[in-house]
């Protein structure tokens, strides 16, 4: 059963210390709800970026909410590097698990299928591999002469993302954003903020059904209009480039970051 809750309630349902899977900016990031997590003082998160992070992840790091970060990159796109992330790397205030995008997907796919690991091409010879004790090089069991990387399953406790639409049964339309579908399948629970809630089942329209995440996976839905602002929601609205620039400038210093968070509290 999917719970329909307020955004505030959803923010309270995400505990400190959990392994939190997040979608990329511009696709299905949920910066609106992430702001509420920051306001309520969430701590010690193990954030899994599926597969990269942006402004919402940088904000969580700046707010001191992240203990471990598993990601293939953190960037603000056209607005440049992620300032709080860079600072935290220098300070050593987060535990870093650098990855490469398809390895994150492979780990999530393993969790989705309920198997302990997944093989993946490439990666051998990179320093990314050297730094990961949860990735190993093995011999292909069908061809001893070939070496291949296996990555262990990645199962977030909670996947949090923003989507265009849910129906009142808890089904969520993701359309082409199937990496978000994968993230939801792999995670123990999915919490979703949406622009709209439909009275009609999204599964009724055969043309749409294949792009719908069934309620089986969805633990909670909250309507949060513009919940993808300022980084955008795929095929619904673009990023607010000026706002992201404003953030990028402010967050260059810890004081500027704090001022930005205080100043934008009412908007969240």
């Amino acid at each position: 059963m999917t719970d329909f809750v307020t955004p505030q309630k959803m923010a309270e349902m995400i505990p400190s210390g959990c392994k939190l899977g997040l979608a990329p900016d511009d696709y299905a990031a949920a910066p609106g709800l992430v702001r509420m997590l920051i306001d309520r003082g969430i701590r010690d998160l193990h954030v899994v970026c599926a597969p990269i992070g942006g402004m919402q992840v940088d904000m969580l790091i700046g707010a001191g909410a992240v203990a471990t970060l598993e990601t293939s990159a953190v960037s603000l796109g056209e607005a440049g590097g992620a300032p709080c992330f860079s600072r935290a790397v220098r300070d050593g205030s987060i535990r870093l698990r650098d990855a490469t995008c398809p390895a994150v997907f492979a780990g999530l796919t393993a969790a989705e299928k309920g198997v302990p690991f997944m093989p993946i091409r490439g990666i051998i010879g990179s320093d990314v591999l050297k730094r990961r004790d949860d990735w190993k090089v093995v011999s292909n069991p069908f061809d001893d002469g070939e070496k291949i990387v296996v990555v262990s399953a990645i199962q977030p406790d909670i996947a949090l993302f923003h989507a265009p639409e849910a129906d009142r049964f808890g089904n969520v339309r993701l359309g082409r954003r199937r990496e978000v579908m994968l993230l939801a399948h792999a995670s123990k629970q999915a919490f979703v903020t949406v622009e709209r809630i439909s009275e009609v089942s999204l599964l009724e329209d055969e043309k749409m059904a294949a792009g719908v995440l069934p309620a089986i996976y969805v633990s909670a839905v909250a309507q949060l209009k513009n919940g993808g602002w300022p980084t955008g929601l795929y095929a619904e609205y673009p990023r607010d480039g000026q706002e992201v620039e404003k953030y990028a400038r402010a967050a260059r210093s810890p004081e500027g970051f704090q001022a930005y968070i205080r100043g934008s509290r009412s908007a969240a």
């Binding site: 870093l96 490439g122 730094r131």
Partner: peptide, 21 residues
């Protein structure tokens, strides 16, 4: 030196894989 690089860039993205394929 990794992991506390004095200058940190975004990250490896898909490079460690696509470069092989």
């Amino acid at each position: 030196d990794y992991p506390n690089n004095p200058v940190r860039w975004p990250g490896s993205f898909g490079s460690a894989y696509l470069y092989f394929l």
